[in-house]
Design a protein around this nucleic acid. Structure first.
Length: 468
RNA sequence: GUCCCUAUCAUCUAGUGGCCUAGGAUAUCGCCCUUUCACGGCGAGUACCGGGGUUCGAAUCCCCGUAGGGACGCCA
């Protein structure tokens, strides 16, 4: 049978990294087995679901390049189907109407809590023959088996057993007729022929209920894989106060999807000692059985390291692609001057994020308007103008503006001036970039171009002479 | 409170009874490379939650604690 997995977020917020990881695992497993990956939007909570959230989720899936083979399906478009199943359950005696009011239920829950019992519905309408109260629209509850246990073999946790006595009769349709989560998931997973339900382990407790409903419907039970949650660096549930939780926030902060995905997959999954995985490798190597059972803490440091790794190693064209958005954001026009791919090659070893990469590359495209103060103090002396003038003279003579010649010209100047490069290099860097950090001088100057380089040196000499 | 789940360096993890005086990665620190900033190279410290078993032998199996997480909605 063909493997079919699904990712089923509810559109009540951003796609957070926990969800992204679950989606990744589902996607990987489908790809690995040459199965199908389905996207389903679980929007039965009419109050909290928003179009903005749907858009955000789709955008994030797209940015991460987790392509789905089917969907997105929307549960709100399948209400007729759910009602059909609810009716079927009612007719077969697997469900019943419950006329309890919210207040009544709240009171019941409080009583039970006070008695230190697990709060649950007591089944008061389950076999009731009492006449329903006037004018009350009933909710519909599933008649959960009273005896026995539900057992399932979780692909990551192993055997999980829960006694039916722990489960109560859950509501499958609200009094306004809208089906609830536990019903719609079950119907969808059956209808969409999902074979492997890969989801967060906050759903472990829902699983036995869902299995019971599936059985009542005579459906085949899919396999389940519950992946542990992602915790913040303090071991608490990941939330906004731990920093970014939304996938797109990472794009905004200059991360590559390659890095985020690689980081996420290693959070709770491993393949020996390997840390870096290409997409193809992942598809090949991924096994649900290798997913860890324990929750893991999110480590921004390691993500940053991976991001830098990918900035360093991905083809410059690929970086450039992802950089376009950041250039627009940071309003840096790169249409004139050095090719962006060349700047990427020159700068990639000193940027941990794309945001940094753009910020530290401005001088390649914009005039230098100020000079780093500490650098000026440390590197500039009264001799500096004279030194730089000599270098400029050498540079001006070059007919071929390449790294070898530039390097040679600088060397020659130093020899003639009888000074060490340390006296000239930093000042030259200050003059041409405004700062104290850049690629090697020959690369920097080469990318700047001969005329820009000479202009900047001249301007700097004037500047230094004026403040002296 | 009740139920479910989990437990190796600060963090992510390897480890499926002898290969473990516990390996890798990130972070930290030191040294080297170096025209800056970086990159890179080399090295250091740091862990099997506690207690009982089982076994010739336990990080690995069992039990009990402890700690953490999750669930207990007419949310998903």
């Amino acid at each position: 049978m063909k493997v079919r997995t699904r990712f089923a977020p509810s559109p009540t917020g951003l796609l957070h990294i926990g969800g992204a990881r679950t989606a990744l695992f589902s996607w990987l497993y489908a790809r690995k087995t040459q199965g199908e990956f389905i996207l389903r939007i679980e929007d039965t909570d009419l109050e909290r679901s928003t179009q903005a959230s749907i858009d955000a989720i789709l955008e994030a899936m797209d940015w991460l390049d987790l392509q789905y083979d089917e969907g997105p399906y929307y549960q709100t478009k399948r209400f007729d189907r759910y009602r059909e199943i609810i009716q079927q359950l009612l007719d077969s005696g697997h469900a019943y109407k419950c006329y309890c009011s919210k207040e009544e239920l709240d009171a019941l829950r409080e009583e039970q809590m006070a008695r230190k019992e697990k709060p649950r519905y007591d089944g008061r309408w389950r076999d009731s023959t009492a006449t329903p109260p006037e004018g009350v629209q009933p909710a519909i509850r599933f008649k959960n088996p009273v005896d026995g246990v539900v057992e399932f073999d979780d692909l990551v946790r192993g055997k999980i057993t829960i006694a039916n006595s722990e489960l109560d009769d859950l509501i499958i349709a609200r009094s306004d007729g809208v089906p609830t989560y536990n019903l719609s998931v079950v119907v969808d997973d059956i209808d969409m022929q999902v074979t492997h339900v890969i989801r967060g382990d906050d759903h472990i407790n829902n699983t036995p209920r869902q299995i019971n409903i599936m059985r009542a419907l005579g459906a085949e039970i899919p396999k389940f894989a519950h992946v542990p949650m992602i915790l913040g660096s303090d071991g608490q549930r990941l939330s906004k106060r731990h920093g970014a939780v939304g996938v797109m926030q990472y794009r905004d902060e200059g991360y590559l999807p390659e890095a985020l995905l690689n980081y996420l997959v290693r959070l709770g999954w491993s393949h020996g000692d390997q840390e870096v995985f290409s997409r193809d490798e992942l598809v090949q190597l991924f096994e649900i059985e290798d997913i860890n059972r324990a929750p893991s803490s999110f480590s921004p440091d390691k993500l940053l390291w991976l991001n830098q790794h990918y900035i360093k190693t991905l083809p410059a064209e690929r970086i450039a692609e992802e950089l376009t958005w950041h250039l627009e954001q940071q309003k840096l026009d790169v249409s004139q001057g050095a090719a962006i791919t060349e700047v990427i090659e020159a700068q990639r070893e000193r940027a941990k994020t794309l945001v940094e990469l753009v910020a530290s590359s401005r001088y390649f495209y914009e005039p230098v308007t100020s000079y780093d103060e500490a650098g000026m103090k440390k590197q500039v002396t009264t001799d500096t103008p004279r030194y730089l003038a000599a270098v400029a003279e050498q540079l001006a003579q070059l007919s071929t503006w390449d790294e070898v010649n530039i390097h040679q010209a600088i060397q020659t100047s130093c020899e003639q001036l009888q000074v060490k490069l340390g006296k000239v290099g930093p000042a030259l860097r200050l003059a041409t970039t405004g700062g104290t950090s850049s690629p090697s001088l020959e690369v920097t100057l080469k990318l700047l171009g001969q005329s820009v380089t000479l202009e900047r040196i001249q301007k700097f000499i004037t500047y230094v002479e004026n403040i002296a």
